[in-house]
């Protein structure tokens, strides 16, 4: 009994399935030309999913096969879905609860960066130079408030009267030299590095930022 128990799928069944797959391909093209609002994507995915199931069940004979192979496939699909769902739960929800910046990192990118030559991709500061306010919004506002609110870092309110311009500049360039009691070291440096602050900001912009902070 070598292969005697193996199911031979009739040509008729295979042909019907092939016909259905072709029809579904036309349906998916047609429906995608219609404007169904938010339904376009789920519909296209549902049709694709159905086609995939049909191929797996009949062409791949999963329907007639040892059930353990069905379990194997289901596991694979399940974990692919978990991978996608949990990753999206981060990327789509960044900024929720107002604790961290939303959107993806970095927050502003010029397409020009893409046409830069490949070697040593030092990102060029976008022109025109950003203002102190813009830089604050991009890099600082997440942790340092302007109105005294306590965030992960100390507030900038009244900083101009507490610190000299040089001290502020030093704190920006090397955040761990002066630490305000009660606030963690290292955090700011790693955040700014992660945001490419030091590589993407020109000297002119740095001056503008310090001026902005000092004015608070």
């Amino acid at each position: 009994m070598a292969h005697g128990s193996h199911h031979i799928i009739p040509v008729r069944t295979l042909s019907i399935v092939f016909g259905a797959l072709v029809a579904l391909t036309f349906i998916t093209v047609i429906t995608s030309r219609l404007d169904l609002g938010p339904l376009n994507v789920p519909l296209a995915l549902a049709i694709a999913g159905f086609k995939a199931i049909v191929v797996a069940a009949v062409f791949m004979a999963l329907k007639y096969d040892n059930p353990v192979n069905m379990v194997v496939v289901s596991l694979g699909v399940t974990f692919a879905v978990i991978f996608m769902a949990i990753t999206l739960s981060d990327t789509a929800l960044r900024g929720a609860l107002g604790i961290l910046p939303s959107g993806h990192i970095p927050f502003e990118v010029e397409t020009a960066a893409h046409s830069e030559p490949a070697e040593e991709a030092v990102p060029v500061a976008p022109s025109p130079p950003r203002t102190g306010q813009e830089l604050y919004d991009t890099y600082c506002g997440t942790c340092h408030s302007l109105d005294g609110t306590v965030l992960p870092g100390p507030t900038f309110q009244g900083l101009g009267s507490l610190r000299t311009r040089e001290e502020i500049m030093q704190s920006v360039l090397d955040p761990d030299t002066i630490l305000v009691e009660g606030f963690p070291g290292l955090l700011m440096l790693s955040m700014l590095n992660a945001l490419n602050f030091y590589t993407s900001t020109s000297d002119e912009e740095l001056e503008a930022l310090v001026t902005f902070i000092q004015a608070q």
Partner: peptide, 25 residues
């Protein structure tokens, strides 16, 4: 042999899932 092949196909699914995740994000 068949179960081995199905397991291999599952690794293919997971391999492509990475690209689908990048697309979705």
């Amino acid at each position: 042999a068949k179960m081995g092949m199905w397991l291999f196909l599952v690794t293919e699914v997971l391999l492509f899932s990475g690209m689908f995740v990048a697309y979705a994000v």
